[in-house]
Nucleic acid binder design. Structure first.
Length: 256
DNA sequence: ATGGTTGCTTAGCAA
């Protein structure tokens, strides 16, 4: 199974790239983030024409997440469930091919110390509790998405420049470690011990031309599922050319 | 080599 995640930064602006990428890579599952559209404006017919089902949890202007899959998704869940008080559409999940797949758009956090940063940390704790309450680390589960955290300095091209930002702050890293401690492995790290691989480059300040990137998009998998991963790639080429997203797809392949 | 934000909404925010 080929399982991918991609923050497209507006599915409306990225529709042509999305369709071309699907046709080229043909993943079994693609988790999307930052749709910036309500479900009615998602290009459902276009992805269906390429053979994909779509589970969409949309929102106007900001946020919005989806899961595309070749086989029918089951047990769809939008947001955090019954007592969800999160006004932002950042989490959707479905069972695909027997795997519980979550597409998550973690809050960015704005500035360290801001209300947005507090929301980010609280959101991450809420996700950890959701996993604890609704899933088991012994089942096949993949938490995919824009996590907005670079796990360690290998994931940052210029650690000194980024160390005090919301993407690298010790509190954000610790919150991600607590989620992982529930029972998730960073599948990319299983296959690449070295640094220098990034999934996001700021549009500003020549981020991509200078390769001033961070690895903040991840496929985290429960351990038995992670052990089945045979390769994890970051499609850096997707950042090139006209009108790229600021993020590129991460593609994990699992043995059957 | 790449490009000096981008997208949504329409002045300012979010990333």
């Amino acid at each position: 199974m080929k399982l991918a995640t991609w923050n497209v930064n507006s599915v409306r602006a990225r529709e042509a790239r999305l369709l071309a990428w699907l046709a080229a890579w043909q993943p079994d599952v693609l988790c999307l983030q930052e749709l910036k559209v309500v479900e009615a404006d998602f290009p459902t017919a276009a992805v269906q024409a390429l053979g994909y089902h779509a589970v969409v949890y949309g929102q106007k202007t900001y946020n919005g997440v989806a899961i595309l899959s070749r086989t029918p998704p089951e047990d769809l869940r939008r947001g955090f469930g019954e007592d969800d008080d999160d006004p932002q559409a950042r989490l959707v999940s479905a069972r695909v091919n027997g795997v519980r797949v979550l597409s998550a758009y973690f809050p960015n956090g704005g500035e360290v110390g801001s209300d947005k940063f507090a929301y980010k940390l609280a959101w991450m704790e809420k996700l950890r509790v959701l996993l604890e309450r609704t899933a088991s680390p012994d089942e096949p589960l993949a938490l995919c998405g824009d996590v907005n955290v670079a796990p360690d300095d290998r994931d940052v091209a210029r650690p000194e420049e980024w160390k005090d930002t919301v993407l690298c702050h010790p509190a954000a890293r610790a919150a991600l470690q607590r989620i992982a401690a529930w029972g998730l492995d960073d599948t990319f790290r299983r296959h690449h011990a070295e640094g220098g691989f990034y999934s996001w480059w700021d549009y500003r300040m020549l981020g991509f031309p200078k390769n001033n990137g961070l690895r903040i998009d991840h496929v985290l998998a429960t351990r038995r599922l992670a052990a089945r991963s045979t390769a994890v790639e970051i499609d850096r080429n997707e950042r090139k050319g006209k009108q790229p997203s600021d993020h590129v797809p991460v593609v994990a392949t699992f043995a059957d």
